[in-house]
Simulated scan of single mutants.
Amino acid sequence: MSMTLLQMIAVLLFAAGLVYIVTKTELTRLMTDRKWQHIVFGAATCVFVLWLFRISIHDGLIIHFLWLSTLTLVLGFRWSMLVGSFVLIMSTVIGNDTWQMIGVNGLIGVFLPIIVTYAVFSYAFHRIYRQFFVYIFVCAFFPGALTIALKMLGLSAYYLADGIFTWDVVYYNYTQMTILMIFPEAFFNGFSMTCLIVYKPDLVATFSDKFYIDGK
């Protein structure tokens, strides 16, 4: 099956973004820092396994948890982009996603959630009082809800724009499910970050006792 024009444009943008991120990331850290090695590959494995669990009410309309807000807070912006893209590519290789959709899935399903999460985190860090519960609810819980909503609404718009599905099919079998996914995704990310910060704060790149706990 050949790609549509929108799919080809999405592939080019996704590839260009990925190349740019690679050139700005110190990849040698994976070879020299054993702890970082474990964190990165552990995070990639967790996200990959999570993405294996998916449902489809209508053929071609796939719904699954993202967990990308947690990934972003744990690894930081650039590494989460690389790991998220790697997981997407592996998911496509094993046949869970199609090669025609890899650009669209990369832009809407990986880049967009990570960019939004990091933007919220950056805004909260510089503009909002830094405190433990602010970090959990504003930087993890809220972005979790926001990213799944933006991803599903973004894909809904794409399916309609590219003529892949009709409005009735997209709306009743995919878009409406957004409401049901918002709270579970938000809770999953908030709960994950709470556990990591309480028990393994050294694994979270964006969290420091100095800013969020000491003297509060």
Rank of each mutant, 00 (worst) to 15 (best):
G109E: 03
K151D: 15
V49A: 13
I114C: 00
T175A: 15
C46Y: 08
L155T: 04
A16N: 14
Y158Q: 05
I108L: 15
T28S: 12
P184W: 02
I179T: 08
L27H: 06
L66A: 12
T23C: 07
L73S: 11
C139N: 06
Y20V: 11
T25D: 04
L18W: 14
H58I: 08
M3F: 11
L203P: 05
Y212N: 02
T28H: 07
F121C: 03
V110Y: 03
A161V: 01
L112A: 15
L107K: 04
S122L: 13
I102T: 15
T117D: 00
L146S: 05
V74C: 13
L180M: 15
V169F: 05
T206H: 08
A119M: 06
A149I: 02
V116D: 00
I57Q: 13
I136Y: 08
L155A: 03
F191T: 01
L153Y: 10
T4P: 03
I115V: 14
T4L: 14
F142E: 00
H38I: 12
A205C: 08
D59Q: 07
F142Y: 05
L88H: 06
M101I: 04
M193Y: 02
M1T: 11
L160M: 13
V93P: 05
A43Q: 13
T32F: 10
N96D: 10
S80H: 02
I182L: 15
A43T: 15
K35L: 13
T194M: 15
V138H: 00
L18F: 15
G42Y: 05
T206G: 10
A119P: 07
A145T: 01
I9N: 08
H126Y: 07
A145G: 15
Q131F: 10
L5S: 08
V19Q: 05
W167S: 12
Y199I: 06
L5W: 09
H38T: 13
I136N: 00
S69A: 09
F137W: 03
L107W: 00
L160G: 04
S69C: 15
F207V: 03
V93E: 11
L196Q: 06
L82A: 05
Y118M: 12
G60P: 08
L50A: 14
F165W: 13
A16L: 12
L27R: 04
I62M: 04
V134G: 09
L82G: 08
F141C: 01
Q7H: 03
R34A: 13
V49S: 00
L71I: 05
Y129C: 06
I128E: 11
R130F: 02
L50F: 12
G42A: 11
G109D: 03
A119F: 09
A15Y: 09
I62W: 05
G144N: 00
N105M: 04
W79K: 01
G17H: 03
V47W: 09
V74W: 01
F211P: 02
S156D: 08
I114A: 01
V104R: 05
T4C: 06
R29F: 02
L150M: 15
A119G: 14
T175P: 10
V169I: 15
F187N: 04
F77M: 09
A119R: 05
F125R: 13
F141E: 00
N189E: 12
M1D: 12
Y20R: 09
L82V: 03
F165V: 10
Y135T: 01
Y172Q: 14
A161K: 07
I136E: 04
V116N: 00
G163H: 09
A205S: 09
D209Q: 12
M177E: 07
M177Y: 15
S2R: 06
